[in-house]
Design a protein around this nucleic acid. Structure first.
Lengths: 232, 232
DNA sequence: TCGGCACAAACTGTCGACAGTCGGCAATCG
DNA sequence: CGATTGCCGACTGTCGACAGTTTGTGCCGA
């Protein structure tokens, strides 16, 4: 072993290219609602704001379009993605399909090590659930589900979830608060782990459907309120 | 001649931007194996070959990277995607997850109109299955599954399948022939339609699993042969 | 007062160019 | 003779600029 330059290892000194930096900047800005949904993003304006040329901005925007955070209209430029109730419903429906599959795969290879990792992540989620940082709750919640996909041992499946995650975050960003009480958050995830442990596919599937269904209904309900307020 | 300013015909005769044209060009070239898997693509070379500048080529390549047909290495450029057996297995496993979900949704809204559309598509598939055009068989086969996703009435789900389709085509491109006899192709798809018609979720799911499983095993087996020949 | 037309501003799509970096090759040293 | 180092070519990342298009505005006529 001991080759100091292991190509698989992360580089020590990362010279991040501008595109990645712009992607991070825009992603953070959109998810923090610093850009309004539907707002037009000017390439030149962003480039000037960041002190760079338009080329990296364009590439970053294209990348974010593929992630579903921006949409482009030919000759019109890029706009912050908006989600109506129908699209939002589609997103959560697809999530159900993906999570059912991931949980099923995890169940087939469930063991003590997997249980421990999931246990730890739920504990972490419980810790932040009692606090006030809504963004942190969301991230730890998604981190649990991301862990499930990682444990499902299918990189392509995990990537599909990652792609969807950006849109999920966008859904959640559209509303102010998402979650139930800390107790219900914890209980819901513990039940998922118990279902995995049981080895009963039907029970696991039902639990996933319920878990995602609750999240979907919560987001949809609050989005409806939001839209009502915005237009009322 | 083609005056680009013709608003009356706008929806159909849009002046396609260079990026889309390059995407089509590269996609066709890769899927037709005119570029070898793993081959490096030079931006400047492609730009010169097509008589355009590098900017549209870069954007097109980035788009194709998000579709999984190219991979980029920082400061090295773009390479034609290669798929090993593990990745290929992942792709088909994700496909099973997506198709299970799509078929389930179609079943819940199954009616005569849906049956007719699927029936027609299978008939079309049967027609070409007897011929020699392997590419056409693949396209009509995928068109059937694409139709199922369309009938599932979830745009995000369909997009997930479309994304996967590029990689599926890439899988299939890696091998010369994919399919069984015309009879088995037909029978396999008719059974899927029958399963949908039965309204039995478990039967439908089993049929999907079998259908995709056969395709997966076929591709994997032939890829293994291919690799063996290539390296033997 | 209102609708249509023309002009102007802003922006995107595309281009050519430059600088920094990476991989390969050859000369050099042990 | 093998390993290392420096150099060279090729290429990517980034930049500034131009042309065509779209949007918004103001003027003119009815």
């Amino acid at each position: 072993m001991a080759n100091p330059r292991d190509p698989s290892a992360a580089p020590f000194v990362v010279q991040r290219n501008l595109v990645d930096q712009v992607v991070d900047y825009l992603t953070e800005a959109i998810l923090a609602s610093r850009f309004a949904p539907g707002e037009r993003l000017s390439e030149a304006g962003l480039a000037a704001e960041l002190g760079i040329s338009r080329a990296p901005v364009r590439e970053a925007a294209r990348l974010m379009e593929s992630r579903g955070l921006l949409v482009s209209r030919p000759r019109r430029g890029f706009f912050v993605r908006t989600l109506d109730v129908a699209e939002l419903s589609d997103v959560f429906d697809l999530r159900i399909g993906l999570e059912r599959h991931a949980f099923e795969r995890v169940m087939t290879r469930f063991d003590a090590a997997i249980e421990q990792r999931l246990h730890r992540q739920i504990s972490r989620l419980c810790e932040v659930a009692a606090g006030d940082d809504e963004g942190l709750k969301i991230e730890e919640d998604l981190a649990f589900h991301r862990l499930v996909f990682e444990l499902a041992d299918n990189a392509r499946l995990a990537r599909a979830f990652d792609d969807l995650s950006f849109e999920l975050r966008l859904c959640i960003t559209l509303i102010t608060r998402t979650h139930e009480t800390p107790e219900s958050i914890a209980a819901s995830h513990w039940r998922l782990l118990e279902a995995l442990k049981s080895g009963d596919p039907q029970r696991c599937r039902d639990e996933v459907d319920y878990h995602i269904g609750v999240a979907r209904d919560s987001v949809i309900e609050r989005l409806a309120d939001h839209a009502g307020v915005a237009r009322g």
